[in-house]
Design a binder for these strands. Structure first.
Lengths: 115, 115
DNA sequence: GATAGTACTATCCTTTAGGATACTGCTATC
DNA sequence: GATAGCAGTATCCTAAAGGATAGTACTATC
């Protein structure tokens, strides 16, 4: 596990893992991040790309992602205003975590279904 | 992101990440895994170690973890029977995922609180 | 024979996540 | 002046997660 085993170190590791889980969890955060990975998008564009999401959930998740600094919300003062959501550089710090989760998920699915 | 961008590859990656999230999520799975990391434990031992958990939740999570082959449940036919829960080798395959999540969580917390 | 421990299950309740549906105020176009 | 698109908000509802509390069947000890 590579995790220290003093009670304090364990609690700290546990908190850190839970923080990460909280940040990535929910049904829509990863689909949104993936949708934005191909470039900045507008609200209704995202709503159309991510099948099944409702505007309420999209709005909420975009706020959460912005609060965690994974995306920016830019208002262009045209008439009418144009609002664009884009990934930040900070969202890139998740790539190793996501890659590990993807790899583990792939092998786990093979293990479960393959027999 | 190191993730391919054909729609199929994206969907597959997304599914894999969600699988991993599902397997690790919930309030108690990681605390149980960590508690068992210091050796096999009995039901009431775990209940005492993991502060706040109720027997209902402990029982449910142990079943989930067993179904995913992260732990084994061994019945010793003594009188009265003794039941021991232990981590499997397969639980070790999570170590890289957990380590990445822990590291990311630690730096994220620093970023959020440190200003 | 009462008390305590083991390994749970059962029932009820609250909280949270998520979804359905409708609507708002704005502008641009037909 | 009607319709459609943009960027959401408001209201209501259901389902799942999680918690509180009690109880079961067994045994071992005092």
């Amino acid at each position: 596990m590579e995790i220290e085993h003093t009670p304090e170190a364990c609690t700290k590791s546990l908190m850190a893992v839970r923080d990460t889980l909280d940040v990535l969890n929910g049904k829509w955060k990863l689909p949104i991040i993936i949708a934005l990975d191909s470039g900045p998008k507008r609200f209704n564009e995202l709503e159309r790309m991510i099948t099944g999401i409702t505007p309420k959930l999209l709005s909420k998740e975009l706020r959460d992602l912005e609060a965690n600094e994974f995306i920016t919300r830019t208002v262009y003062p045209t008439t009418p205003v144009k609002i664009e959501y884009a990934l930040t550089g900070y969202s890139g710090t998740l790539s190793r975590v996501i890659a590990e989760m993807r790899d583990w998920g792939i092998q786990h699915r093979k293990k479960i279904t393959g027999r």
